[in-house]
Design a protein around this nucleic acid. Structure first.
Lengths: 256, 256
DNA sequence: AGGCGCTTGTGAAGGGGTGCACAAATCGCG
DNA sequence: CGCGATTTGTGCACCCCTTCACAAGCGCCT
């Protein structure tokens, strides 16, 4: 692999640039490894082999080794990886050494659930503020936080250092909210509204659309149904799956 | 809902299987196109160019054309695509001509929100039943549905034809629920629990992990921050990493 | 009728990701 | 102290996907 570094490191040999630029696919898997590692740590494991960790994370072991090699992590040949060390490394690379503040806009059905979701807190995030445009919702208390009007966003952003904005509004309001978030300096947005957001360069948007996931499953369901209605010998789609590796091939690549 | 319009069905006798097998990446984008098309239809558009639709869906126009060509859809050169026709074609391919029944297991924080999410109903799905293992939750009414105990799943599955199972339980319960779903014949599962599910071949699992999305954003946020604070500052946070990311290995082979 | 502008559909090139297979490295044990 | 068992790190080949660029097709206008 050509280890081309950024063009701006002339003199210094050995001076390591800020972060290795990881393949996007690797980045998407690191959180999964991290979760598996925490499980292992809690059950008392001190080291783990690539095979074991890959298994726990639901991926191929070669892929896992390549992923970890990208971030320069050293395992020990013949032994495996040090669980604690690996956790620290991945958390550092993912920028989780600081607890990031999240602003959640839209406390409807979904927003309520997100505000109360303890999976955020347990994995390095802190919901710092809740917003809604509906005056009748402002003032409501959810999970110890008071809902504020979205117009207060600038003031709150000045106090707290908002790292990520989460949009859980109806689609019709999402773009306006995104604009407001960008205006107060938020450069990472997680969008639950079913619509395309346009944002300036340098702002990252990830989208989660619950209905889309169902529609993708629906496609496979439809395909499976149309296959069983096909050839003779009652083979059924289960035995007729193509290629060698039919198992769990959907369990990945969400997003991008 | 519309009729049965199989792409290329008339005239071609048996040579073509019921469904073209689309690239997975294409399948994942079709729902996005569908949503954009519905928006266009509501605003009175009868046709749309690949450029226009690609724009509305947030993708490259060449990619969109290739995607649509995969499902045999005809646009008209010089004009574009017929919006209504394209909607029918995509809905057929995705298996949305029937309204699919969804069983939701786990009515905690997230499950509540999913049960009330109207984005499902508006896009071809019907939540047919709610389940939970907690007896204190059984009997509760949510969005017009009564929560039943998860042990009733077999009986309900016998009445309703469950197409997709959604798991919104804690991670500790997810595998058991998945097993139960598989046992009653569900072959598509959407998993919100942060864990890896193992299922038999032929069962599709898609996973949505809200915290993972935040962690991916956190990575990019971290990277952006480390880039702006770049050149002369030798230290950076790198040295804070236990074990160090000493990627100083110049182990490049002699190649070329 | 014929030409012109617009748009689709696709061949081909390039990039990225995946998985295999193996050499290199490390540990434990005799 | 050296050997074998074990496991990492990675070169390589393959495959999928993306993107460009362009010929072919269609409607409209003259």
């Amino acid at each position: 692999m050509s280890q081309h570094r950024h063009p701006g490191a002339p003199g210094r040999a050995g001076a390591v640039p800020a972060l290795p630029d990881l393949p996007e696919a690797t980045v998407a898997r690191l959180p999964e490894y991290l979760r598996a590692l925490h499980n292992l740590a809690e059950t008392g494991h001190e080291t783990v082999s690539s095979e074991g960790l890959a298994n726990a994370a639901g991926v191929n072991s070669a892929k896992l080794r390549k992923d970890l090699s990208h971030l320069g992590s050293y395992g020990t040949r013949g032994v495996g990886y040090d669980v604690g060390l690996l956790i620290d490394q991945i958390e550092f690379v993912l920028g989780l050494t600081q607890r990031r503040a999240v602003a959640l806009v839209g406390v409807g059905n979904l927003g309520h659930a997100l505000a109360g979701y303890d999976g955020f807190a347990s994995r390095g995030f802190r919901i710092a503020a809740l917003f809604d445009a509906d005056p009748s919702r402002v003032g409501e208390e959810i999970s110890g936080l008071t809902v504020r009007h979205v117009d207060e966003l600038p003031r709150v952003a000045a106090e707290e250092s908002i790292s990520i904005g989460v949009i859980a509004t109806p689609a019709s309001a999402a773009q306006a909210v995104a604009d407001q978030l960008v205006a107060v300096g938020v450069t990472s947005i997680l969008n639950f509204a079913p619509c395309v957001l346009s944002v300036p360069e340098g702002v990252d948007v990830r989208k989660v659309d619950l209905a889309i996931e169902l529609q993708i499953l629906s496609f496979h369901e439809h395909r499976k149904a149309s296959l069983t209605a096909l050839p003779a010998s009652g083979g059924s789609a289960l035995t007729a799956l193509p290629g060698g590796l039919a198992a769990t091939d959907t369990q990945e690549a969400i997003g991008t």
